[in-house]
């Protein structure tokens, strides 16, 4: 137990710098969140296209940056022994493959269905009448048989 206390001794003694680090990270996280939200507001009503995709890319980068700051500073991982960092970060690299493979697969499935499944293709082009009410209570376009009456 005493050793784990010693491990933090270097960090606990200089009180000011630790607090300064917390303040800095808080500001960074808040600023990144505000930028994300501003981009989100900007995207409202924007047509699908390259610009929208680029904004989404920036939002993902900001998300990763926020994740880094939380893990590195709030969870203190940056100040741990390198071997501990590696045992956690290296397995998480599997996510690179997971995300690439599964999103690629989903996209391929969509293309295959659009090519060979005529019903799927038609269903996704038929426009449904927009909802007439504020809360969309009566609006049961795609599930007529599922929700016979709204129960509250």
């Amino acid at each position: 137990m005493s050793q784990s206390h010693n491990a933090h001794a270097d960090h606990g003694t200089n009180d000011g710098s630790a607090i300064a680090e917390i303040k800095k990270v808080t500001i960074i996280l808040s600023v990144f969140t505000i930028i994300e939200l501003m981009l989100g507001f900007w995207m409202i009503g924007m047509p699908v296209g390259a610009l929208r995709l680029a904004i989404k890319g920036i939002i993902v980068i900001l998300m990763m940056a926020k994740a880094f700051y939380i893990v590195a500073y709030f969870m203190h991982l940056k100040h741990e022994v390198k071997n501990l960092i590696m045992t956690i970060v290296v397995p998480l690299l599997l996510f690179v493959w997971f995300i690439t493979a599964f999103l690629w697969d989903g996209n391929s499935f969509k293309n295959l269905r659009n090519t060979y499944d005529r019903h799927f293709k038609e269903q996704s082009t038929i426009k449904v009448a927009p909802k007439e009410e504020e809360h969309g209570e009566k609006h049961t376009s795609d599930e007529k048989n599922e929700v016979p009456a709204e129960k509250h």
Binding site: Q123, S124, T125, I126, K127, V128, P130, K131, H135, G136, E137, H139, T140, S141, D142, E143, E146, V147, E150
Partner: peptide, 17 residues
């Protein structure tokens, strides 16, 4: 608003079901 597991009252962004 009618949203729950198995119930989706919202339309797609392009107006399709």
């Amino acid at each position: 608003e009618g949203a729950w597991w198995g119930m989706n009252p919202f339309l797609n962004a392009d107006g399709t079901a």
